[in-house]
Structures are given as C-alpha cells and as structure tokens.
Design a protein around this nucleic acid. Structure first.
Lengths: 238, 238
DNA sequence: CTTTAAGGTCTACGGCGTTGGCATAAGGAT
DNA sequence: ATCCTTATGCCAACGCCGTAGACCTTAAAG
C-alpha cells in the first residue's frame, strides 16, 4: 500500500477538498450509508463515493485501507447505533432480548449495508463493547463462565446471522421490487398437491410466515433454554 | 439480453468448443465450484470461468442469465447435495436434526460458494424438495399446520443463516490465512480487566468457543422447543 | 445434399479498485 | 511574519470486470 492510512485520532491537517468539503471518517461512513440506501449495494463504488463527497475517489484510501476497510467501519457504525439505541433495565432476560432486537433492527435499517458487513467480525471498539455488555449481563445474572460464554456465542451469532439473512431478503426486495416478493404466493402456492402435498396443504400459512423474520421466535427459544439452564444450575450448586 | 438463455432440457445442438470441450449447465456449475474452492470468492469471473472451460467467456451467457443466474444454480446444486447425502429414519427429531446438519455441512464444504448463495431463495426444484420434506416430517410427526409452518420457517432460516455466517468466517480464514484466525486469542485476550472485566475473565473460554459454529447448539434448542410444543399440544387436543 | 438457426467466438464499451507521483497548503518552528 | 515539512488532496494510468451485439460455423432437420 503506497498510501499510509492515518487513524482518525492522529489526523492533524484537515485540508478541504477542491469542492470545499472537509473529510473525516465519520463523514465518509455516513455518505457511504446514504449511497447504499439510495442506490443499493451495487451503487457503492470508490468513484461514486468520491463524487458524492466532492472529492477524488482515491482520497478515500487516505482514510480506509481499501473499500474493505470502509465496509468494516460501516459495520462498526451499525453496531454502535444498536448499542446507543439500547438501555439496560437490570433484568437479564429483558435486556438480552431487547439488545438482540436492537442489533437486528439496526442492521435491518440499512439492509444493503448489512448484507456487506453483518457476517464480518471486526474487533473494533463498539463491537467489543457489545460483547463485553452481553457477557456482563450473563455473568451478573448468575450464569457460570462456561454457560455465559456458550450462550453469548449462540446469542451474538444468532443476531448477526439473521441480520444478514433478513437484510439479504430485504435488499433484494428493494431492488427487484416485488418480482421476488410474491414468490411464496406465486411459485409455492401453485404447486400441485399430488407432487407436493405438504406445501399445498399449508400454502396459505406459508405466505404469511415467510415474509416475516424468524429471528424473534428463535431468540425467545434461546432465552428459554438459557433460563432453564440457569434455574437448574442454581438448584445444583447453591 | 441479446443472448437467449435456453433451458437444459430444450438444448439440442452440442457444439464443441474451440478447444474441444462440450458444455452443459452441469459442467459449468461444477467448474465454477472448483474455481471458487481453489481461488476464493474473488477468483470466479466470467473470463476466468471461460478460460477454465476452454471457451469464450461470453459463452456462459448462453447457459445462464448473467453471473447471478449461475450463482443461483450453484446454490441449487449445494441444496441438492445436502438432500442426496441425507436419509430419513422416520423419527422426526432425528431426521430434522440430521437434515439441518446436512444442509449446514453441504454449504460449508464450499464456503466461498456458500457466501454467494446461502442467503438467496431461488425457488428451484431441489430447494422446493427440501421444503416439502421438512413440512412432511413435521406434519407427519403430529404438529398442527400452524406449528409445522412456524417450526419449518425457523428451521430453514436458521440453517441458511448459519450456513452463510459460518461460511463467511471460513472463507475469510481461507483467504487471510490466520491473520484473522487468532483474533480471539490476540485482540480479545489482551483487553485489560479494568476496561473489559467480563471478556478478560472469560478470554480462555472465548477463544475455544468462537472458532466453532454455534449452529448445532441452536438447532438443538429449536428442536427442544418444538418437542415441548408437540407434547403440550398432544395433551390438549387428543 | 441443402437449408437453417443454435450456439460458440470476436470485439468493444463503460465501469471498477487501486496505485504511484505530484502539488499545495496547514500547522509547527523560529 | 516567514519558512519548512509533510500530510493530504488530485491526477493519470493499469489491469481487471460484466456483458452486449455482430459474426461465423457447423450440427441437425428435411
């Protein structure tokens, strides 16, 4: 890499762009998010981002090590927003549930961005903060360290996996506009009972279900399992 | 699209390529899978695929409507392989569990391909076959239609979401080769207890956990929930 | 054996990520 | 106030990419 990427904290000079805008990591990330929202996942490119910023495309490389670095920063931003929108109550189950939903919602608010970032572990500050928070909730609730780590793992991966999956579905809908939307009422509803009896019998229910996320149900299932584990452990070693 | 895409069944003439190979959807999909495995997700391009096939890149467009169409065919292939590798025993819980693991494993066998396809619903035959199978298992087991559809939804989305998430992690590992692999033993292990007490306290456990998939645990959690639901329903209306 | 059109090939377009070199002005030192 | 250094924005260019349209060749239908 010929260009040295300088971290935001060390950045000293703030030379305005030819068109007058003053760049920053924050501005670039937010512009990228806006472009993703407006023009879809394929609408984000270094060149277009440059134009949108009123700067040369290559300038972005002074702030991020390639578009991949920008992508990770976007993920970090979404994770941060989830955390900011969340408040603790002190009840572990309530807090975990709302935190999971907050993460899911934060990503789904920017489906095109989520598709790019949700399956990446970045190790950046806000992401670590989320991890610390989850582990704290669990350990404070009385889970053993082993249980806490196991549940934490399932919890965070479930949230991220469904953020990615549901965002993918949303992003496609946004782009193909209904071409895909009626899949469950078109393709699946017209399968003959002779070859596909079970789909045919439940087609009306499927159409309803499949256009919503399965995440809340699975989250509750996970929390139920954790709850059971907690009470059984309490019974054992207290 | 200037090139009319002909379905495999209607294809009549099989003109060999300049270099002698005879093309088919199947050959193209398998070549693409091999390229993905050997050169990573970025290693698949129409041009490289053409060279690998001994054909002009644009020939691919006679078989698939763009690389996106090829991608969907690859997903269909992976789903088909999962189904072929699976055998029913007649016990709903055993069968669902093994089917879920088969889907997950089939995708993870080709992480780079899975990343591209796992979050796409294609509506192609083998995918529909899987859906019909799952619904059949559940309805035959005695679940009400409503429950069956709910569990089916959670089940298939869980499998696909984790196929995508875990494949993403694997694909990155394959490419960045350990740069990312030791994240949990490097970044997270060195966080000071003062700022991140919970991560610090469980760092040794985290490193173990985070390099494995949370999918089996969540799958079992889901099946537990389903089982409970089944017995409670039986109690009610039998 | 002729005809016809399927299907492989050629060429070209516009866009992409990224880089190395260059110019200029911001900010510290005097 | 002036100079100096160097951070940071700009430019031009490289080698890729997906894919459209015209063309050509040859398998098969009659």
């Amino acid at each position: 890499m010929p260009k040295k990427v300088v971290t935001e904290a060390e950045r000293r000079r703030r030379r305005p762009t030819r068109q007058g805008t003053v760049l920053s990591e924050r501005l670039i990330v937010q512009t990228a998010l806006r472009m993703l929202r407006e023009h879809g996942a394929a609408g984000l490119s270094a060149r277009r981002l440059g134009t949108a910023l009123g700067a040369d495309p290559s300038t972005v490389y002074r702030y991020f090590a390639g578009l991949d670095g920008l992508t990770r920063a976007i993920g970090e931003e979404l994770m941060g927003r989830a955390l900011d929108s969340w408040t603790a109550t002190g009840t572990w189950r309530t807090d975990l549930r709302s935190l999971g939903l907050a993460i899911h919602a934060s990503y789904l608010a920017h489906p095109q961005a989520a598709v790019l970032t949700a399956s990446r572990v970045t190790g950046r500050p806000r992401e670590i903060e989320v991890d610390e928070t989850i582990l704290g909730i669990l350990r404070d609730a009385g889970f053993t360290d082993t249980d806490a780590v196991g549940i934490y793992h399932a919890f965070i991966d479930l949230a991220l996996a469904f953020a990615a999956l549901d965002a993918g579905a949303l992003a496609i809908k946004d782009e193909v506009r209904e071409a895909d939307e009626h899949m469950w009422t078109s393709t699946y509803a017209h399968l003959p009972p002779t070859t596909h009896p079970h789909i045919a019998a439940t087609a009306h229910l499927l159409a309803d279900r499949m256009n919503h996320s399965a995440y809340p149900v699975l989250l509750d299932t996970l929390l139920n399992g954790a709850d059971a584990r907690l009470t059984s452990t309490r019974g054992q070693d207290v």
